[in-house]
């Protein structure tokens, strides 16, 4: 029951809503919260997703089969993507709080890795669909 798409949609939707509310409050200077607090919904969500993927990898290695038919390599790819996204959020928060003084080009590198990975996946989906339709 808790694993139906509706509950997963509800989870993602709540995370985005909470983040937007925190962001608006911070940008309008109603509060001077740390940027880490603003990004907490995404930080918690990404940590949860990483834990979930690691759990699935362990189950796959134990049982030798995955119910969703994802290979170990595919799961490692998902893990890499989520880690890149999490790294971007952490580095961005550090930069916004002036904990580090790195250039924004360096800060954006994990985001570009994540987006390029997503772009490659999306291109593959479009390619498969185009070939399926002939």
């Amino acid at each position: 029951m808790a694993n139906t798409p509706f509950y997963r949609v509800l989870g993602v939707w709540s995370v985005v809503l909470l983040f937007l509310i925190f962001l608006v409050i911070r940008l309008d200077k109603e509060t001077d919260w740390f940027w880490f607090i603003i990004f907490i919904p995404f930080l918690i969500f990404d940590c949860f997703v990483i834990f979930f993927i690691l759990l699935r990898i362990c189950r796959h290695l134990k049982d030798g089969v995955d119910p969703n038919r994802f290979t170990i390599a595919r799961k490692c790819w998902f893990l890499f993507m989520v880690t890149a996204k999490l790294s971007f959020i952490i580095i961005l928060c550090c930069r916004l709080e002036n904990i580090i003084t790195a250039s924004y080009y360096v800060v954006f590198i994990p985001l570009w890795i994540f987006l390029l990975g997503l772009g490659c996946d999306a291109t593959a989906w479009v390619w498969v669909l185009a070939n399926a339709r002939g």
Partner: peptide
């Protein structure tokens, strides 16, 4: 991993091509 591609498309009401367009635009 959390959603399948089919679930994302159904929820957002976008086609795969539109999703691809949004991702590419966001990269630039």
């Amino acid at each position: 991993m959390i959603f399948t591609l089919k679930e994302v498309i159904k929820w957002l009401g976008l086609s795969i091509f539109e999703l691809w367009l949004h991702i590419m635009a966001f990269i630039v």
